[in-house]
Nucleic acid binder design. Structure first.
Lengths: 186, 186
DNA sequence: GTCTATAGGTGGATAGAC
DNA sequence: GTCTATCCACCTATAGAC
């Protein structure tokens, strides 16, 4: 694997576990056995590494959502798979990259803040479409705008992830995710 | 106000907006117009300041819950007031102190991690009792253990706070809070 | 209790050789 | 692309005078 890819891979894990303000170039350099100067060759500033991380994470995430779209028909099953992505990340001891960054929002460079909002907007858009489809099909039931329920789902799953990780208990997340989806059953 | 109290007051705000790893003694010293050395007189180590912050926040929070207990009879109204506490914090541009620290969990001193879990446990305990009372009275409706629903509420409210703040939109939080409580109506 | 002064470490970042 | 060497700003923390 190219160095820049190895850097991104490790930096992603570091942000997901320790946060953007919780890791340094020195951490990456030590783990990859290169010097800090080398890292600056690939990502001149930490803020640019941060931007790259969000962009990459969003692309991979949206690709996973498209995969669900292709493989799964049932809207309710789509929601389960959506929550399943979160569960997998958590099982690996990580937080959602963007959920982590949302906590540090006020300290992030403007460019990162913007890309972060975009990630959540795209998530809400996808969920909103699934919810609308499910309601039309009579498989899901809820009041009000699909987009509003989508926001509740994203927020709740991110929060559940955060607290489950603090308690070192993935089951807490799964229990909450199932409950959220069950509440939407028609 | 005594200096130590002024330090706590400001440090609390800083953690709530920037996180534990996002502020320094220098920030406090500048704002309070004292030296960093003075701060170390009151709180020798940053980790001790952190511990004090959680303890203080929890005491104040639990006092607010007791006040609700005294003033309000209806379980559903208690839930509304509970969410109202979060909304007030958010309206002030802050995150929940402990929600913020939960994101930084992996980087915190062990003592702080422990106090953090205690805060959430107490929250879940209080909410669990309210939920059980509400179900018995026929005012609230849900399946399974009250404690599980309590966890969903805490997680979801924390997550909603986090994302609403990132979008600079308190209404997002209120909409989600209302929806969560409405879903429990009998 | 608050100050000056400073230690000792780490942060992100750059210049220039190889 | 990766290295050595280095800069400067900032971090937490301490010693000791007032």
């Amino acid at each position: 694997m190219e160095t820049s890819e190895r850097i991104l891979e490790l930096a992603e894990r570091l942000v997901q576990t320790r946060g953007y303000n919780g890791f340094s170039y020195a951490d990456i350099a030590a783990a990859l056995k290169v010097t800090k100067a080398s890292l600056h060759y690939h990502f001149p500033a930490k803020s640019e590494l941060g931007r790259s991380l969000i962009g990459r994470y969003e692309r991979n995430f949206l690709a996973a959502l498209e995969a669900i779209e292709r493989k799964v028909k049932s809207p309710r099953e789509k929601l389960r798979r959506y929550a399943g992505i979160y569960a997998e990340v958590l099982r690996d001891g990580r937080m959602c990259l963007c959920g982590m960054l949302a906590a540090e929002y006020a300290t992030l460079p403007k460019a990162m803040q913007q890309e972060l909002r975009h990630f959540f907007d795209e998530n809400e858009r996808w969920l909103g479409a699934v919810l609308e489809q499910g309601r039309r099909a009579g498989e899901l039931e809820f009041s009000g705008a699909p987009r509003e329920v989508a926001r509740l789902l994203v927020s709740s799953l991110e929060g559940a992830m955060m607290l489950a990780r603090s308690h070192g208990d993935v089951r807490r997340f799964r229990a909450i995710a199932e409950r959220l989806i069950a509440a939407l059953a028609a």
